[in-house]
Simulated assay, not measured.
Amino acid sequence: MPYMYIVECSDGSFYVGSTWVLERRVWEHNNGGGVEYTRRRRPVRLVYHEKYERISEAYGREKQVQNWSRAKRQALIDGRPQDLPMLSRWPSDPEDEPSVE
């Protein structure tokens, strides 16, 4: 089954990805087989994941969550779905620019 996942890096930042095999992908991030972003921030630990029927759904969710603020990602990780609408960005707020983490 495909997954969208979030790992927390050693510097406290989050990396959002999608994969077919979750355990293998986290292992790859921790053993130099991940993307450059996580290679420089090892070790990483899995903090959240969602399972999907199709990889295209997992990838779509990955792209959605990548554009969220850190606070909104943290609410998702913490299991606070009621906070997600409140944490949506307002384009006019410069402090809430999209995160590249």
Rank of each mutant, 00 (worst) to 15 (best):
M1H: 13
M1Q: 12
P2M: 09
Y3P: 00
M4C: 15
Y5Q: 00
I6V: 15
V7G: 03
V7R: 00
E8W: 00
C9K: 05
C9P: 01
C9W: 02
S10A: 15
S13T: 14
F14G: 03
Y15F: 11
V16E: 01
V16F: 05
T19G: 02
V21R: 15
R24I: 07
R25Q: 04
R25D: 02
R25E: 04
V26W: 01
E28Q: 14
H29R: 11
N30V: 05
N30P: 05
N30T: 03
N30E: 01
N31D: 02
G32F: 03
G33Q: 09
T38I: 09
R40W: 02
R41E: 01
R41A: 02
V44K: 07
V44E: 06
V44Y: 08
R45P: 02
R45I: 00
L46F: 10
L46M: 11
V47P: 01
H49K: 07
E50Y: 04
K51N: 08
K51G: 04
K51Q: 12
Y52C: 04
Y52V: 06
Y52I: 03
E53W: 11
R54C: 08
S56V: 13
E57G: 05
G60T: 10
G60N: 14
R61S: 11
V65F: 00
V65H: 01
V65R: 01
Q66E: 14
N67G: 15
S69Q: 13
S69I: 07
K72F: 07
K72S: 12
K72V: 05
K72Y: 06
L76Y: 12
L76K: 13
I77Y: 12
D78A: 15
D78W: 07
G79I: 06
P81W: 08
Q82F: 10
L84Y: 11
M86E: 08
M86A: 09
S88E: 15
R89H: 01
W90Q: 14
P91M: 00
P91Q: 04
D93W: 07
E95K: 11
E97Y: 06
P98G: 08
P98A: 10
V100D: 10
E101H: 13
E101K: 11
E101Y: 13
